[in-house]
């Protein structure tokens, strides 16, 4: 699996919020993107996920299932958790497993992995912000996609949560998965590539 992006340029309001950015990641590699507010970190991740129209540049995924589109190889975790408060934690995860094409029998282990095993049958609306974030991390584990795009994955997480995130990423990379994460916090991951985005001049 190889993720290649060349010359990514995104315009918003006639202004270039991202200009000429390239990304190249192979199997098991992770990249952490940092930079000040407004540097285009989120924009880069959304662009990689295919959620933004590109003014220039191209994104390609090689070595994957040829039947699937680039977007189908990716798992995007944005600022928002994508959690439905009216459904239980388990229902939330089971839905994403079915919808994104994952393993719906892995629901329990995924919830255990993020430390929500005890809350599986609670309505997600009763969970705290950090627990909701953990729930969205469980989504990553249950719906297997080769490329993880994580936008501020550490938001609202405590140290235990950060450890669990790190081990999820570890397992994913060991299985040949790719990770691109945008963050302000120090995620403490081993052997990552780094990219620093500056303000576009």
């Amino acid at each position: 699996m190889q993720l290649t992006a060349d010359d990514l340029t995104v315009e918003r309001g006639g202004r270039r919020v991202l200009e000429g950015v390239g990304v190249k990641l192979g199997p098991g590699e992770a990249m952490v993107v940092t930079g000040p507010n407004g540097a285009g970190k989120s924009t880069l991740l959304r662009a990689l996920a295919g959620l933004l129209p590109l003014a220039q540049g191209r994104i390609s995924v090689e070595g994957g299932d040829g039947e699937r589109t680039a977007a189908e190889h990716m798992h995007f975790l944005g600022h928002l958790d994508g959690v439905k408060g009216a459904l239980t934690a388990r229902e939330n995860i089971a839905f994403w497993a079915d919808f994104l094409g994952g393993d719906s029998t892995a629901t329990e282990t995924a919830l255990e992995a993020v430390g929500l095993g005890h809350a599986a049958d609670l309505p997600a609306g009763t969970l705290s912000a950090g627990q909701k974030r953990r729930l969205s991390l469980a989504r990553l584990a249950v719906a297997r996609r080769d490329i993880w795009l994580l936008d501020e994955p550490a938001t609202a997480l405590d140290t235990d949560g950060l450890d669990r995130l790190a081990s999820l990423v570890e397992i994913h990379r060991a299985a040949g998965g790719l990770v691109v994460a945008a963050t302000h916090a120090d995620l403490g991951w081993a052997m990552t590539k780094r990219m620093v985005l500056g303000r576009a001049v």
């Binding site: 996920a49 295919g50 189908e72 990716m74 944005g78 994508g82 919808f99 994104l100 094409g101």
Partner: peptide
Amino acid sequence: AEDGSLDLLFAAP
């Protein structure tokens, strides 16, 4: 759109 699920609807197989 409010809870971010919409972004993931684009990634469906």
